[in-house]
Design a protein around this nucleic acid. Sequence first.
DNA 1: CTGAAAGCGCTAACAT
DNA 2: ATGTTAGCGCTTTCAG
Lengths: 339, 339
Amino acid sequence: MVGIEEVAADAGVSISTVSRALNRGDQVAKSTRERVEEAAERLGYVPSGVASSLASGRMRNIGVLMPEMDRWFRSSVLAGIASTLGKHGYDLTLYTFASSAEQRRDVFHKFLRRQRLDGVITISMDMSPDETQELSRLRLPAISVGGSNSRRAPLSVDDVSLARLATEHLIALNHRVIGHIGGLGDAGINCDVPGDRQRGFSQAMEAAGLPAPASLFEPAEFTIEAGLRAAKQLLGRPGQRPTAIFAACDEIAIGAIIAAQQLGYRIPEDISVIGIDGHELSEIYALTTIDQFPRRQGELAANLILEDVTASDRSSARTEETALPYELAVRGSTRLLHD
Amino acid sequence: MVGIEEVAADAGVSISTVSRALNRGDQVAKSTRERVEEAAERLGYVPSGVASSLASGRMRNIGVLMPEMDRWFRSSVLAGIASTLGKHGYDLTLYTFASSAEQRRDVFHKFLRRQRLDGVITISMDMSPDETQELSRLRLPAISVGGSNSRRAPLSVDDVSLARLATEHLIALNHRVIGHIGGLGDAGINCDVPGDRQRGFSQAMEAAGLPAPASLFEPAEFTIEAGLRAAKQLLGRPGQRPTAIFAACDEIAIGAIIAAQQLGYRIPEDISVIGIDGHELSEIYALTTIDQFPRRQGELAANLILEDVTASDRSSARTEETALPYELAVRGSTRLLHD
DNA sequence: CTGAAAGCGCTAACAT
DNA sequence: ATGTTAGCGCTTTCAG
């Protein structure tokens, strides 16, 4: 591997000039800089990451913390982050917790303390007070995506509003008996997004003067499979059958559509279904949903963390929430109910 | 941040003893080691990653290269890698190419040259000669998952055999008119897995003396959406209708099932469908498939690269292919054809 | 505008 | 078994 000395020798300057020319470009005569750049290019010189990090204190590396990538939302956010960081010359170090408490502890108490990171992005993570404190002690810029409970510059849509909007869409289509599937999340992850969405549902129903009895709610985690099972429960149960279902996320909604079809219901003739997220499969199922552009959320998060990292004045750490765009995408799974 | 000197002072030893006690443990009196460990633990000391990397040449960091995470197979492999590396105290640096040739070039010519990695795992990537050469020059252990063309210790199932097995399953069920959907892949990724699977299909058909006319093949990329469209073509086309479909992957198979249902066909009464991969959705669709345990492939790849990295004798770099397990999972989407 | 020199925080010979 | 010392390859004052 060619080092800075060879470049210096080739360009006929000292190593400090090479460093300056390549890193800042200022305070270097244009002609010198060009000579250095040419030499570096020709020799294929790339500064050693660890050496320059040790000397400068900058790591050019952002850590991403998330609980498994098994949900489409999370891997979409990750993709957005990866692409943006790469564009800016930053590495992305990925930490996931395969539901192992020990691994999770290690990440916070070992990996993050190795001082390899300039900043941290967390995706749909509920952090314990202990973890939050750990993160603070590191004095690293941090920002969280997907969820709304963190005290460190959360970046998230207002899940309550989102759920209210979805429910109101159904109400506006004349539906009066509306079921909800969702509400379940693992401890330590997802920032009570399920709870927020359930609350949004309740609020909208109440505001419209509609009842939301327990019989019209079925708990489910955020997967297609759980949605499938829950919808069968909801639709198979004796008693009042809903004319519409608000699913807490698109995975659940898709599961519900499959379940309904298996039971012989037609969508949307017999039952309307709406979800939240903008899942890649939603188009195939003609699912009406609220798109929240997760990939763009990742890009935004990456850009914000880079801003924080490069901000000379460190006190300016963002602390307010950033409102994120979302958009009702009306497709074929919801329709007007004629009474 | 507490450094090695503070630990040394606290334990009443020199910094080199601290380093030894924590890193290797050998050549240190047991009592001393315990005192050092206790001090380190109490002070919350974690060695600076960059400093120890610079001094030792070990990065404790593996790079993972892959073309976007938009396929289930790839993110499953990644999850397996992440979990295994974490368990062994290694960081995982993620590089993706969002179909941008420039970004891809940067990864090979800038990021990888920063000497931050101990090894590289590539997931379903076709590397150009230029890229392969770049990788060789780095003299890093490398291993590739998903695909079979790399010359560096590929780790993959034999896709031709896999496809033959799938096709033979259909033939064994009396099917004679079998369609194939697949064969399409982006340039630079996927190592011609689509091609291999198509060849496996042709081989099996030929071996059984069955015709495989062009009208029974429909090209598609590896997504549900593409499978949906392709299946509609295949089934809507005038001429002989297949009684069974071999889809090159589960996403395509699921798309085909949805398409068939939309056209009014029943699965498996009217049409049998088989896929490959073991996708998480395959159970929901009762899809018969060949599971290739991608998560375990990731775990295996990680373990192998760690072996290579820690192998004292560097010449022992693995070069032979490792055969991977796969398993026919018969579910409800295929059935015997009664003539 | 450029060069010399002092680290960055640790590991690894080399001594003892 | 432990301490001393010389780097690892850069960045960044500090002088010129």
